[in-house]
């Protein structure tokens, strides 16, 4: 263990099952965003163009539901995975927010302000990554819940007053927009576009991270794996 790895040595970060889950999530959220935000932006030429592209209002709604079913299926799969498979459960535990995350966040702010020379040493998941995971997770559940009410509105309105239905529609629209911003702007920046990853990181394709990237971005995890020696040149 104490032997420092070479810089380009690959370490498994995500298993194949996790990569597939990520792909399904990516496709379903992209589909939902395109068909959903088209409706959100119906008054703009872009929104109108998207709706036309999606085959008009009713076809758009159908596609939205197809991607929704995909997301629901994935959510069920993911929940079973993180609750009942040993590997998944281990990942879930690593995702639980801790006091250390708060300290790391404070440290990160000090580092950004220039008060502190070195960034905090993150573990397997940095506090911002945890925030994104839980944000996306809770957000997806809200979207699924409100989406079901909108989908089965005739049935839902048997018990819901109209004003609550209107609230549901507003929540579904804005929460969707929020989710889109967090994942397709923030997450994409952090994973692909930020210096050090730019133009893109291949971890989401291969599931493997280099020892050097691990040292730079998840140093606490690196230390647990390889000890305190930085990776070796060649």
């Amino acid at each position: 263990m104490a032997n420092a790895p070479r810089k380009d040595q690959l370490v498994v970060r995500f298993t194949r099952v996790e990569l597939i889950q990520h792909w399904v999530l990516l496709v379903s959220l992209l589909g939902l965003a395109l068909t959903g935000l088209a409706l959100f932006a119906h008054a703009t030429p872009l929104g109108r163009w998207l709706i036309e592209l999606e085959g008009g209002m009713e076809a758009r709604g159908l596609w939205h539901r197809v991607f929704a079913v995909l997301l629901i299926g994935l959510t069920v799969w993911h929940l079973l995975y993180v609750l009942f498979s040993p590997r998944g459960n281990e990942q879930l535990r690593a995702m639980v927010p801790t006091r250390q995350d708060l300290r790391d966040l404070a440290s990160l702010i000090r580092y950004y302000r220039g008060v502190q020379g070195e960034p905090p040493e993150f573990g397997r998941f940095s506090p911002l990554q945890k925030l994104q995971y839980w944000g996306a997770g809770v957000g997806s559940l809200i979207m699924i819940f409100t989406g079901f009410i909108l989908w089965f509105h005739t049935e839902a309105m048997m018990v819901l007053p109209k004003w609550l239905f209107d609230v549901t529609a507003v929540v579904h629209g804005y929460e969707g927009l929020l989710l889109f911003i967090v994942l397709f702007v923030w997450h994409v920046y952090m994973v692909h576009l930020s210096p050090g990853h730019f133009p893109w990181s291949r971890v989401f394709l291969t599931g493997k991270i280099t020892a050097e990237e691990l040292w730079r971005h998840h140093r606490a995890e690196y230390r647990a794996l390889f000890g305190d020696e930085p990776p070796l040149e060649e």
């Binding site: 005739t154 309105m157 048997m158 018990v159 007053p161 109209k162 004003w163 609550l164 209107d166």
Partner: peptide, 13 residues
């Protein structure tokens, strides 16, 4: 339209 609509439809603006 919405067959089976009940008073819930009137509960709101």
């Amino acid at each position: 339209c919405h067959p089976g609509a009940n008073v819930n439809y009137a509960r709101g603006r």
